[in-house]
Each structure stands twice: as C-alpha cells, then as structure tokens.
Design a protein around this nucleic acid. Structure first.
Length: 250
DNA sequence: AGTCGCCCACCCGC
DNA sequence: CGCGGGTGGGCGAC
C-alpha cells in the first residue's frame, strides 16, 4: 500500500480558518428565490418518488429547476478544482488511473479512503455549501463530505458499492446530478455473476439535470450501482455524492 | 469506482 | 423489405 496522502491542491488552502460566509439565495439563483426565506422549509415540499426493492430503499426528486441547475453547473465549473494527479485505483492487482475528474470537499481535516486511496477534503466552496444545505433542507440529513465526479463524454463508473468503513452506515448518501442526463443501474449482490444464487431484476433509473437521489440504508449493503457507458451522450455531467464520514482516519 | 473481449441486439444503408 | 456489416453495451474474466 502506498502513502497517498500528499498535498492535494485545494482552491482555498490559504484561508482554511476563514469562517464560511453564508451565501444568499439571490447570489446563486437570482431574485425569484429570495422571498419567504423563513417559510422555505415547508412551503414548497418537493414531490418524492420512492424506489424500492428487496433491501433497496431510495428516494428520487427534482431538487433544482432547470434554470437553477444550469446556474449551479456553471458555478461549479468555475469553483471546483479537480485533483491534478489522476486518482489511481487498484482492481484485481492492477493499478489504473480513473478516466474522469474527481474532487473531494468537506469539513476541515476530513479524509475519506476509497479503493485504498486516502483523499483529503478541500474546504467547502459557496456553491457546494448551497447545494449541501439544499439537500439538508429537503432530507433532514446533514453531510460533512462530498465526492465530486466529472464525467465527460462517454465516461462511466463501474459497478460498485459504497461500503467504506468510515461511512456512517445509517446515513443516506445523497447524489446530486447536474448536466447531462444519464442512466443509473442498481444490481442486487446475489443476482450478479454467472451462477448467481438468485434472480432479482436490476433497478434502472434516469438521473435528470438538477435531480437528487437519496440512497438510504441498507441499499449499499445489498445493491451495487453503476453509471453505464452511453456513447451517444456527449455533454458532461457533474455528480456530487454527499456523505457522512464518521472518523477522520488520522 | 479498472480494462478487455465475447456475444448479442439493434440500426442503418443498400 | 431482408440482409449484413457496424456499433453499442451487458457481462464475465482478470
């Protein structure tokens, strides 16, 4: 195992002690969102779609309007700094660079290790805070970390579970999608492979621009998920998965 | 959180 | 309209 915790370039390394400024809604969205700020929590409940199967429990909703999602996408294009050195991953003994841009943001000092690679969280940016708080507002869950995947063109993500030890197993993972619409597939762990013990239908979703997918416990115990190749999709997608990390891994 | 190769389904041009 | 080559993508091996 390599010592991977090297300096990662974070945009605000210089001001790590600066308390976060609250971002006013109009700075993100324009004026139409600024009214009735204190009523927001309950005045406009978003319509959730329940997605269930055996051991799978997800909630899906459109969190942002197209207009707002467009704006957030643009903001993130400017704000988010992706790790310069390609993240590496080890699969069946071989080391590969992952073919997409990744970034990790979160509370100060947080380290999230996946596939054997510890990644230090950069300081929250205003837009990431705004999205995080929007998710908290509609879910009631708080998050201290976000993994950002930038999928250009026909990038994809292989089938996996988010089963890292430092993830709070009872906290949902909130996946926000911006940009290109992509298919998303769940497969039950017992229905994979040549001689799978059971026949359970995969669950297929379409993740829209501005959507939020909540993956609740115990989904990640029983179900793998992937973002399959879609060669006809040429535009990029930014995916933000908000998580709750239990320990700093110091 | 990887690629590669096989195989099948679908598409399109002739 | 049927056929065949090209392509996409689902899986499994590693």
């Amino acid at each position: 195992m390599e010592k991977f915790v090297r300096k990662q370039s974070c945009p605000d390394d210089t001001e790590t002690t600066t308390p976060s400024k609250k971002l006013k809604p109009e700075e993100i969205e324009g004026k139409e969102e600024a009214v009735d700020a204190e009523e927001d929590d309950f005045s406009d409940p978003i319509p959730w779609q329940k997605i269930e199967s055996e051991g799978l429990d997800c909630d899906y909703a459109l969190l942002f309007t197209k207009h707002e999602a467009d704006h957030l996408f643009q903001k993130l294009e400017k704000e988010v700094v992706y790790s310069t050195e390609e993240a590496k991953v080890q699969v069946f003994g071989k080391v590969y660079g992952i073919p997409r841009k990744q970034a990790t943001y979160g509370d100060t000092g947080l380290i999230y290790t996946y596939s054997g690679v510890p990644r230090l969280a950069c300081q929250w940016t205003p837009t990431l805070k705004y999205i995080r708080d929007s998710v908290t507002k509609v879910t009631g869950h708080t998050f201290n970390f976000v993994l950002i995947n930038y999928e250009d063109g026909h990038d994809h993500i292989g089938e996996h579970r988010d089963d890292e030890r430092e993830l709070d197993p009872l906290s949902p993972i909130a996946s926000v999608s911006l940009g290109a619409v992509r298919d998303f597939v769940f497969r039950h762990r017992d229905a994979r492979g040549k001689q799978s013990s059971r026949r359970i239908e995969p669950v297929k979703l379409v993740l829209a621009h501005g959507s939020l997918l909540l993956m609740n416990s115990p989904t990640n115990t029983f179900w793998y998920h992937s973002l399959p190749v879609r060669k006809k999709v040429l535009l990029p997608r930014i995916n933000l998965t908000f998580r709750r990390i239990m320990s700093t891994g110091k």
